[in-house]
Amino acid sequence: MSPENRSGRRVLVTGGASGLGAALVAAFAARGDRVIATDLAEHAPGNLPERTDYLRLDVTSDDDWAAALTHVEDTWGGLDVLVNNAGVAAGGRIEFLTMDDWRGITEINLFGVVRGCRTFTPLFKRQGSGYIVNTASVAGLIHPPSMSSYNAVKAAVVALSETLQHELAPYGVTTSVVCPSFFRTNLASSLSGSDPVVEASAIKLINGSKLTADDIAGQVLKGMDRRKPVILTDRTGRLALRTKRLLRPLYDRTMRRAAEGVRRRVERNGPATKNPTENHA
């Protein structure tokens, strides 16, 4: 049995100080895994479970990733599971998203994942084992209106993960991509963009969900146990994807109604607070 199949695995989780990352750290630790939680803060949060260490890691920094690899090799001599979970939320109509908005979300949500995969793949190949888990979103599989930047980077994470599923399998390395829909988390506080009308709607959906980060983390571990290439964590996501694949006219009508809803909210609330022609550098 390969190392990543046993309890007592060596696990690194990015974005592990809060939200889904913290829930994943707790879920791995509860199984008896040894975990390194990483995040931007200089010091460890006060709620880390037993068998958990903390390491500052900015996923946009090549130096921080190199330091994480060195730390893992010096501390454990290897790694069994890499969870690329760190990310931010964003939304907005295409004319309101600035190029800085696009660069910011791409650097964190996509290139942060790419850096993690590039950093640890050579180690996994040398070991002949390993498990990469990339957190995307159901927005990487279905593409609602007014979320172009978020949809695009999450779809890229899905594509990257599928590529690595095939590319790394000959080396004994497994890859899964996690695609949750809305759940209650502090991700709403990280919403960034230039379209306050759309941001308000996203916050309402996140805060109104009945699912918690712990619920999603439990489903992630179950999906990993089954080596599922795509881990859909909730009924809403499964139903939406099934509708897109099998009932495309219904899917298209639903998305057009959502876009019409945005248009009506904009009309009720008046013009946006920012000029969409500003800051397009």
Rank of each mutant, 00 (worst) to 15 (best):
M1H: 06
S2T: 08
P3Y: 01
E4K: 03
E4R: 08
N5P: 00
R6P: 00
V11G: 08
L12M: 03
V13E: 07
V13H: 04
G15C: 01
A17N: 03
L20W: 02
A22L: 14
A23H: 00
L24A: 01
V25C: 02
V25M: 01
V25H: 01
A26T: 08
R31I: 06
R31K: 10
V35E: 01
I36T: 12
D39T: 02
L40I: 09
H43C: 00
P45N: 05
P45Q: 05
N47Y: 01
L48D: 07
P49R: 02
P49K: 04
R51I: 00
R51A: 09
T52I: 03
T52P: 01
D53E: 09
Y54K: 00
L55T: 01
L55R: 06
R56G: 01
L57C: 05
S61C: 05
D63P: 02
A66R: 12
A68K: 05
T70G: 12
D74C: 11
G77A: 11
G78S: 09
G78Q: 10
G78D: 10
G78C: 10
V81E: 13
V81H: 12
V81I: 15
A86N: 11
A86W: 09
G92R: 06
I94H: 07
F96E: 10
M99A: 11
D100H: 05
E107Y: 04
E107K: 08
V113A: 13
V114G: 08
V114Y: 12
F120K: 10
T121W: 05
F124D: 13
R126Y: 04
G128A: 07
V133N: 06
V133R: 03
V133F: 04
S137V: 06
A139K: 00
I142R: 02
Y150R: 06
N151C: 15
N151Y: 03
K154F: 04
K154D: 08
K154A: 06
A159W: 02
S161F: 09
L164T: 07
L164A: 11
H166I: 15
E167Q: 14
P170M: 08
P170V: 11
Y171E: 10
V177C: 13
V178M: 11
C179P: 03
R184I: 07
T185V: 14
L191I: 15
L191V: 15
L191N: 13
S192N: 15
S192F: 15
G193P: 14
E199Q: 15
A200C: 12
I203R: 15
I203N: 12
I203D: 14
L205P: 01
S209C: 09
K210H: 09
K210L: 10
A213G: 14
G218Y: 05
V220Q: 09
R226C: 12
K228Y: 03
V230D: 04
I231C: 12
L232F: 11
L232Q: 15
G237F: 09
L239F: 13
A240F: 08
L241H: 13
T243W: 02
L250V: 15
L250T: 12
Y251N: 07
D252Y: 00
T254Q: 07
T254F: 01
M255L: 06
G261L: 01
G261C: 02
R264T: 08
R264N: 02
E267S: 08
R268I: 04
N269M: 05
G270K: 02
T273G: 11
T273F: 03
K274F: 11
K274P: 00
K274E: 07
E278V: 08
N279Q: 04
H280D: 12
A281L: 09
A281E: 14
